[in-house]
Write a protein that binds this DNA or RNA. Sequence first.
DNA 1: CCAAAAGTGTTCCTCTTACACCCATGA
DNA 2: TCATGGGTGTAAGAGGAACACTTTTGG
Lengths: 233, 233
Amino acid sequence: MTDDDWTIPEITVAVDLAILTVKAGSLQIMLVKRGIPPFEDELALPGGFLESTAEDLDSAAARELTEETGLRAEDLHLEQLKTYGGLGRDPRGRVVSVCYVAFTPNLPAPAAGGDAREVILTPVDDVLRPQVTMAFDHKEIVADAVERARNKLEYTTLGATFCAPEFTITDLRQVYEIVWGERLDPRNFHRKITSVPGFLTPTGGRVTRQAGRPAALYRRGPATILHPAMLRT
Amino acid sequence: MTDDDWTIPEITVAVDLAILTVKAGSLQIMLVKRGIPPFEDELALPGGFLESTAEDLDSAAARELTEETGLRAEDLHLEQLKTYGGLGRDPRGRVVSVCYVAFTPNLPAPAAGGDAREVILTPVDDVLRPQVTMAFDHKEIVADAVERARNKLEYTTLGATFCAPEFTITDLRQVYEIVWGERLDPRNFHRKITSVPGFLTPTGGRVTRQAGRPAALYRRGPATILHPAMLRT
DNA sequence: CCAAAAGTGTTCCTCTTACACCCATGA
DNA sequence: TCATGGGTGTAAGAGGAACACTTTTGG
C-alpha cells in the first residue's frame, strides 16, 4: 500500500458462505431464498456484511455461519475461498464480498434459524445447470467452491470432514465418488487410504450397513495432508 | 448474502501486490519504502485503495501494478492471493486488503515511476528473517505469496514466467532450485520437463553461457498445468 | 587434450491399476 | 447355502531417483 489520499470510497464489504455437504448421494450446498429485493425470491449464498468494529474476516464468517445455519465453526472446516468485487454484482452499490467455503458432514437439519428466511440444501449439480440463475454472482462462487472441494480431496484429508464422526472406508470412498462424480475401485481405495499414516484411526467398532462382511469404523486422524496424493484420472 | 440493514460500515478496501521475480540467484520481491505515516520509512507492498466507481478487483490490481512499477499486467501472471482483514492491521482505520501475487522475469529496472517514493527489490529470505519488520501485516502476506509460488511450481507451468522470453532448460531448473531452495538433478529435470507436452516449444536457437555444450533455447508453450506434477521431496 | 555443461540410457524402486481371490455376515 | 459387501494378494506398467555415459562446446 502506498497510502496518501485518505478518503473513504463508498464500498461495502460482505462475507458470503458456500457450505458444502454430502447427502443422499450428491454434493449439496446450503442456500437461502431471498426475502427482499434485490433478487427477491432468488437463491443466494448465506452471508452478510462485515461489521467494521469488532471482527476480523474469519470471525465474521464464523458469526454468519452460526447466525444463518446454527452450525458452529469449530465443528467444521471453514476456509477463505476468494474475494469477488465485480462492478455490477450488486445493484445497490459497490459491494466486495469475501467468500468462504465450509465442509460439513450430513447436516442434522437446515434449521432455518437466525436471519435467514428460508434455508435449503440443494445438489450443486442442480444449481449449476445453465438454465438456473442465482442472485448476484453467486452461481460463479458456487462453481469455484465446488472446484476447490474437488481439488482439496486430492491432496488433503478433507474428505473425512464430509463424514460422520465415525465412518467406514466405504463411506469415505463414496464421498470421493460423489464429489468427483467418478467411480473408484473399492479395493485400491481401501489399500491406499489405510496406508496414509495418521489419516484414519480405527475405533475398533464394526458395522454392517446392508449385507456382507461388517466394515471397520474409523475416526479422523491427525494427518491433514495426503501423501502421496489421491489423483483423479 | 442476506441483505437487510443497508448501512455503509466504515471499511476501506485496498489492493496490494506481491510481485515476485528471480534475480541474482534469489527469489526477490518488489517493495516500497513508505514516505508518510503510518509506518513511515518502513517497507511495504505496493498497492493502493480500490476506486469504487470504475474498476473491478483485477483491474485495480493491474492499475496499481502499472502505476507503481511501470509493468504491464499483460506481460506477467497476476492472480488473487488472499484477502486480509485483521482488526489492527491499519492504525488509520478498518482496511480490508485484497492481495494479488505477480510472477515476472528478471525485471528491466524497478523504475520507481508513479506514486511510489522508492521502489526496491529484496530477496524474500532477507525480508522474512525474524528480526525484519514490515508495515501493516505485509510480512505475513509476503510469506503467503512465497508459499503460493512454491506450490504452483509443482503443478503448473508457472516456472517459465520467471524466465526471459527465450530460455534454456538450465535457466528453468535454476528457477525451481531458487524458489524451492533445493538442488535438483539436471538430468532428470531435463527429461521430465521435456516430456510434458506443450510446456516448452524449441526455438531452434542455441546458446553457450559459460562453457560446455550449447543449450537449446525454448519459449513457453501453450500448456498451463504440469502433468504429471513436479513434486518436491 | 581437458574441463564443463548438455543431454541420453539404464537400473532400481515406489506407487498405481486391474483384477483374482478370500472373509464374514444376513437371509 | 448363497448373495453381498469388506478386505488382501499379486502381477504389469508408469513414473521417480540415482547415476554411468555420451555429446559438444571453449580454452
